[in-house]
Simulated assay, not measured.
Amino acid sequence: MDLIEKFFVCLGAAVSIYCGMKLLLFSRMLFPKMWFPLPETFFTSMGEWAVVTGASEGVGKAYALALAERGMDVVIMSRTKAALDKVAKEIGERTGRRVKVIVTDFTKENIFSKIEVQLKDLNIGVLVNNVGMLPSLIPFRFLECPDLEKTILNVINCNMKTMVKMCKIILPGMENRRKGLMVNISSGTACIPFPMYTLYAASKVFVERFSQGLQAEYKDKGIIIQVVAPFGISTRMTGYIQTNAMTPSPDNFVQSSLLYLTAGDKTYGSVCHTLMAWLLQCIPTKILYSESMLQGLQDYVQKLPKEPNSGAT
């Protein structure tokens, strides 16, 4: 066997091993309870309280309810007091856990000192950085965004600054106790450069890189920091699109995502969304970013039945 033939044999073996390992890693997503089992006391062992931002509806509400069902008292935060009070009542009646309401608008400046005071004396074991805003469900080019200057500031404050500030407030207590869980909600749109949702997707890339760097820094302190990057979920942000295998309800998605908390520093939260990310990354960018594809995306979303989704959740 000459040198060139040996090279291609070795290359083929390396590719086969690589593909086999990727397939094995993906197969673990199918059986999370077997591969990533959690003890019944996992959540309560982290601390007494869980804090969830953007918890007045949708995914945030589902996380708050799921954590209360697992024995935690919860702090729910958003900008609409009436909606938060309704969620607090529902959680209390269904689970018997204590619920603390903090009303705040995460698009605003200079709000975090007041939040820190209200959280000061709580033994916080779980933080879910869920709050986020999508400038518009309808895809558009960056310069076509209405009130662009205000939108840029709001997206930075809500999607990026809030996560960093909440980590700054809560991480020291977790470090001192050498335990804690942080779940930072990104988006499947961050898996590739995502034209027509450029500002939103880029803000979610920040969420991922910050979270993964933070996990590397604090993993040895006993703290789990995980990015969850879902695609479409039937919420106000997506115009309450009809649920199906690829578009779960908030409750179903959250129950699924909680099964993967020890699966690594990033997950897509469900098998279907993991497959979607893989398929999206396989499409050649020349096709994905073609004018016809971008226009087709805009036309498709415009035809979807939807409700208004402005503002932060």
Results as ranks from 00 to 15, higher is better:
residue 1 M to N: 10
residue 3 L to Q: 11
residue 5 E to A: 12
residue 6 K to M: 11
residue 10 C to K: 15
residue 17 I to H: 12
residue 19 C to H: 15
residue 19 C to W: 10
residue 20 G to D: 06
residue 22 K to L: 14
residue 27 S to I: 06
residue 28 R to N: 13
residue 30 L to T: 14
residue 32 P to S: 07
residue 36 F to T: 04
residue 37 P to G: 07
residue 44 T to G: 05
residue 49 W to N: 00
residue 52 V to A: 02
residue 55 A to I: 05
residue 58 G to R: 01
residue 62 A to M: 13
residue 64 A to I: 00
residue 67 L to W: 00
residue 70 R to S: 03
residue 73 D to L: 03
residue 74 V to R: 00
residue 76 I to T: 02
residue 77 M to E: 03
residue 82 A to P: 02
residue 82 A to K: 12
residue 84 L to G: 05
residue 86 K to A: 09
residue 86 K to N: 13
residue 88 A to W: 02
residue 90 E to T: 11
residue 91 I to T: 06
residue 95 T to W: 05
residue 98 R to F: 01
residue 99 V to D: 02
residue 99 V to F: 09
residue 101 V to D: 09
residue 102 I to Y: 01
residue 105 D to G: 14
residue 105 D to Q: 09
residue 107 T to M: 05
residue 108 K to Y: 11
residue 108 K to G: 04
residue 109 E to S: 11
residue 110 N to D: 14
residue 111 I to Q: 08
residue 113 S to K: 15
residue 115 I to K: 02
residue 116 E to P: 01
residue 116 E to R: 11
residue 117 V to W: 13
residue 119 L to S: 02
residue 121 D to M: 07
residue 129 N to L: 07
residue 130 N to H: 05
residue 132 G to T: 08
residue 136 S to H: 10
residue 137 L to G: 02
residue 137 L to C: 07
residue 145 C to I: 15
residue 147 D to M: 10
residue 148 L to D: 08
residue 150 K to R: 06
residue 152 I to W: 01
residue 153 L to P: 00
residue 153 L to K: 14
residue 156 I to E: 14
residue 159 N to Y: 03
residue 160 M to V: 08
residue 161 K to L: 12
residue 164 V to A: 10
residue 170 I to N: 02
residue 173 G to Y: 03
residue 179 K to S: 08
residue 179 K to P: 01
residue 185 I to L: 12
residue 185 I to Q: 00
residue 188 G to L: 00
residue 192 I to M: 15
residue 194 F to L: 01
residue 194 F to S: 06
residue 195 P to N: 12
residue 203 S to F: 07
residue 203 S to W: 04
residue 206 F to D: 10
residue 209 R to M: 09
residue 209 R to V: 05
residue 211 S to N: 14
residue 212 Q to V: 11
residue 212 Q to G: 07
residue 215 Q to R: 15
residue 216 A to L: 15
residue 217 E to Y: 14
residue 217 E to P: 08
residue 223 I to N: 00
residue 225 I to F: 08
residue 228 V to S: 01
residue 230 P to W: 09
residue 230 P to Y: 14
residue 234 S to Q: 15
residue 235 T to R: 04
residue 235 T to Q: 07
residue 236 R to L: 07
residue 236 R to W: 06
residue 237 M to F: 11
residue 240 Y to E: 12
residue 241 I to W: 09
residue 241 I to A: 04
residue 242 Q to V: 08
residue 243 T to F: 04
residue 243 T to A: 10
residue 244 N to K: 13
residue 244 N to M: 08
residue 250 P to K: 05
residue 250 P to M: 03
residue 250 P to G: 02
residue 251 D to T: 07
residue 251 D to K: 13
residue 252 N to A: 13
residue 256 S to F: 02
residue 257 S to Q: 09
residue 258 L to K: 01
residue 260 Y to C: 05
residue 264 G to E: 03
residue 265 D to Y: 03
residue 266 K to A: 03
residue 266 K to H: 08
residue 270 S to I: 06
residue 274 T to V: 03
residue 277 A to Q: 08
residue 283 I to Q: 09
residue 285 T to I: 15
residue 287 I to A: 12
residue 288 L to S: 10
residue 288 L to K: 11
residue 298 Q to G: 02
residue 301 V to T: 10
residue 303 K to Y: 10
residue 303 K to I: 06
residue 303 K to T: 12
residue 304 L to F: 11
residue 304 L to K: 13
residue 308 P to G: 10
residue 309 N to K: 10
residue 309 N to R: 05
residue 310 S to P: 01
residue 311 G to D: 14
residue 312 A to R: 03
residue 312 A to W: 00
residue 313 T to L: 14
